[in-house]
Design a protein around this nucleic acid. Structure first.
Lengths: 146, 146
DNA sequence: GATGAAACGTTGTGGTT
DNA sequence: AACCACAACGTTTCATC
């Protein structure tokens, strides 16, 4: 991860569809060189994915929420298997602390939220926080001085 | 948002760098037609961004955490202004409930976390949950039956 | 939306340091 | 090992229908 790779990453984090030749012009490389560096960053696991960010609001999901789950004894494993089938869950992490699980979910409306929580309470105790607004969304990763 | 747009979105959510002609072949359109549909979805705000997902672990951030903040009286506004300058914060939402703010942060190590929490406690009361593992990451948005 | 043509980008080979 | 140059091929981007 030299300076050039950080510059390439900065470009791709802003716009994952930027062409390698356009990036090459900005960083002072030819497009085959950029292509090779990107491929190596993918192989190394530094670049995980190129994803399109969509607006859930525009697609019929009027509510977003953060839900924590404190799983009942013996219910964590079944939850971890079934959660992958819940289309509402955008992100789900195992965490330390009083709760085992934290999820970011999207829902069509209040009754959808109600039904979803009804599903969850079979696995554990939940706490729900409605998301009011985004302050920061998917911030870019910058080089850090070690 | 007809069936074709949903198919195009499905392609782009899997790989934001897929070419319009490749998508066109899959969905049965020419590349100019795909290009125009994508442009319209961007203009409408349905497509927000094409982003590269990077591995924070590979880039020197060994710790991830969820931190909630219950801001002191008069401290929420200053926090909302300053949080944009905190490179550690990937996502930050205003939420309902006992806490005002929830953040997803990346940190180099424990002492980095300690310093970051020291910064936060000038704005309010914090609760920190270390992320142990990902269960679901940036799930794809699918069509929902209204 | 399709078509077709020009500009542009990608990708492989071979060569340089 | 990393990069450049070049050429063949694919893609994007117009115009026009």
């Amino acid at each position: 991860m030299d300076e050039l790779n950080w510059k390439i990453l900065a470009c791709l984090q802003v716009n994952a569809r930027e062409s390698f030749s356009s990036i090459g012009r900005k960083v002072g490389l030819t497009s085959p060189a950029v292509k090779e560096r990107v491929a190596k960053m993918q192989d190394a696991g530094i670049i995980q994915d190129f994803k399109t960010v969509v607006s859930h609001t525009h697609l019929g999901f009027q509510l977003r929420a953060i839900i924590t789950l404190r799983a009942f004894v013996g219910k964590l494993k079944p939850f971890l298997e079934h959660v992958k089938n819940f289309d509402e869950v955008l992100n789900c992490y195992r965490i330390t602390g009083n709760e085992n699980i934290i999820m970011e979910v999207v829902l069509q409306n209040q009754s959808h939220l109600e039904k979803f929580i009804d599903t969850l309470i079979t696995y554990g105790e939940t706490r729900t926080h409605i998301i009011l607004s985004n302050v920061i969304s998917n911030a870019q990763v910058k080089k850090v001085n070690k």
